[in-house]
Design a binder for these strands. Structure first.
Lengths: 315, 315
DNA sequence: CTGAAAGCGCTAACAA
DNA sequence: TTGTTAGCGCTTTCAG
């Protein structure tokens, strides 16, 4: 396989000149430039990207750490990331963590290894110190609210959304407001926020229940069964995802309860599911978060940008 | 930032020895090994991945070309790919093409640039020759049926699925069988197969119609409007995706037709949507395709592996 | 406008 | 078991 030396030799110039042509450097004589380009074509030559990266100390690649790829919320986020990265001529390494701290840390070291220029962090189990310890080697931007001020981030205003939803349900007169979340409150900040928002909003003694470990449609069906075969059935439910909400609705039906006649339900992510089934859903504008996160990552600014959510009602 | 030379100097050994320790090479004296490890820790040293790649001529990275990331079918596929790649200690570069041939080609050249070891191709607009021309520089595996024998691939048996669906609908006595697809028949092989399967199965003169440019829920609503405000309304529809099917069902309702009373509909991808709305859906087992595609890509075998679909009926 | 040469940091063949 | 050294292929300063 031809290298820059071969091109230089065949074109009768120095490798420096070839490099200049390659990088569209000005100040190269027209004839030499054309000769070099001809030889490049003739030899079917391409630069070796790894040599460039090594020499430049820059990779034009960013890493994105996600727990999974099978959740619509990461879907939208990743879409935004891909779009903006492509615009800015960066490539994206997709790094699945499966919520394992060891794996997440190993991804952070990619910065030290100079294999990526920056990292975008979505939902994770990392300790802020682990992040800060590696920020020295490259920028790390968080797509969720980070408790530590020093970590630049672009994130949804989840707490405000939770407050808004609970307030809405309360004002509507619902008294048995159940809600769900994903990871348990010890590992998930958003679960904690959800509980806190509930406590701050629903101050009276309501017959509410909380269910964690809800991630998809099946989980929705599972907790739906728990909710509706109970003697106290909910009159409103705030779920952490449209799929979960859909599962609950499906389960409710098997127990003789139907939406929207017997209860209200509110989802998250604003997917076609909520549109089809006609329940309200919170849109966190993840695509926009993804785009802005990439912009922030590739700038040399520090910022913590909060993106406003939107509670979407159906016709 | 410390490099291997610094480590060698401080540990009082040669860089070769450090390299051996780094790569867990046998035949390194215990004491030297420990000394080196101590220095590595002290200096907080990490290898430079780009130097390794350049030196070894191998990147342990694969590229995955996808049109978009916002379609559940790529979701599942990518999930399988990520899982298997992680197992085999490879990293995944996610390359969105937006169905643009120029972009797709530019991704193929990453092989020549030695930036990835192989490419996984999903739906694309590339000409088989374009693929073969670059196979010389690295393995390319296709996740769709490729018309050219020489391209290794792992792919769903779409045609068989289409035949099965149309046969099923025909045997059920439906006479106005509409169907949808994504890209038009000129650019999409699967659209052509769909039409061909229809022609081979439905030989009598049915009042059928075909609609392309259907990709998501909104498209489903759009073509649903076309279908149901027509004087000839379908009694069965085969869609190219659960979202499209859901959109059609939603639209049908606004026109006074409801599923399953007034028509049959069959989707694709077997997502929660079809489960919730209760229509049958074709599962192509994309997760499995993704996993096997990675295995094939990283082996040095040649194969064309067809994965059997499954037509999923609801309770 | 051009070329020589010194890196970038690591691997691996070879000799010891 | 260890060290020397020649690559891997490109960028970039510096001198001209």
């Amino acid at each position: 396989m031809a290298n820059i030396k071969d091109v230089a030799r065949m074109a009768g110039v120095s490798i420096a000149t070839v490099s200049r042509v390659l990088n569209e450097y000005p100040y190269v004589a027209k004839d030499k430039q054309e000769k070099v380009m001809a030889v490049i074509k003739e030899l079917n030559y391409s630069v070796n990207g790894n040599a460039v990266k090594l020499s430049k100390g820059k990779t034009n690649t960013i890493g994105v750490i996600v727990p999974y790829n099978n959740n619509s919320c990461y879907d939208e986020l990743i879409n935004g990331i891909l779009k903006k990265a492509h615009e800015l001529h960066y490539q994206v390494l997709l790094l699945p963590s499966y919520y394992e701290n060891v794996i997440e840390s190993s991804y952070l070291t990619l910065l030290k290894k100079k294999m990526i220029d920056g990292i975008l962090l979505t939902s994770h189990t990392l300790h802020p110190e682990q992040i800060l310890a590696l920020s020295e080697w490259g920028k790390i931007v968080c797509c969720e609210a980070c408790p530590v001020e020093l970590v630049p981030s672009v994130f949804p205003d989840r707490f405000a959304a939770y407050i808004e939803v609970f307030t809405y349900l309360k004002n509507r007169g619902y008294k048995r407001i159940h809600f769900t979340s994903g990871r348990d409150f010890q590992s998930s900040p958003s679960t904690r926020l959800r509980i806190q928002a509930y406590q701050e909003t629903i101050t009276e003694a309501y017959e509410s229940q909380f269910f964690d470990q809800c991630f998809d449609y099946q989980d929705g069906k599972r907790v739906g069964d728990l909710m509706f075969r109970n003697s106290i059935v909910p009159d409103a439910i705030f779920t952490n995802g449209d799929e979960v909400a859909a599962g609950i609705i499906a389960s409710a039906q098997t127990h003789g309860y139907s939406y929207p006649q017997d209860f209200e339900i509110i989802g998250e992510e604003n997917t076609p599911l909520s549109e089809i089934l006609g329940f309200p859903s919170v849109d966190y504008h993840q695509t926009s978060i993804g785009e802005q996160a990439v912009s922030l990552l590739l700038s040399d600014e520090y910022a913590r940008i909060q993106i406003r959510h939107q509670l979407n009602f159906r016709a």
